[in-house]
Amino acid sequence: MVDISLIAMATGFVLILIGLYGALTNGNLLRMIVAFTVADAGVNLVLVSVGYMRGRTAPILDSAVPAAEAVARIIDPVPQALVLTAIVIGLGVTALMLAYAYRLYEAKGTLDIAKFSELKW
């Protein structure tokens, strides 16, 4: 039986690749941002899957997991703490990118990066 964390990690890697492919090949700014969020989800999935251990449970102590048994029962809390903030920051970054895209659209009247000619030489 394949381990859950391996399946999830493979999925996360595939999502990163799909997202990067979309971000690299699309010409539309909004589409690039959508692809970026997909890649973002992939990265988070990989990080969480690193912390998972078979047969263990969430790092929260309550009546089901008393403090004395914690070491034997819980999974690694550090990746979760990292991903937690990464998701929120991801939304901030997405909002920032969308604001820039909107401004670019207002300035140029298009979202197609092939039409932004100032950066070419």
Binding site: T57, A58, I60, D62, A64, V65
Partner: peptide, 10 residues
């Protein structure tokens, strides 16, 4: 899932 794992916090 909460039932399977037995954790009400889920």
């Amino acid at each position: 899932l909460a039932l399977l794992e037995g954790r009400g916090i889920y």
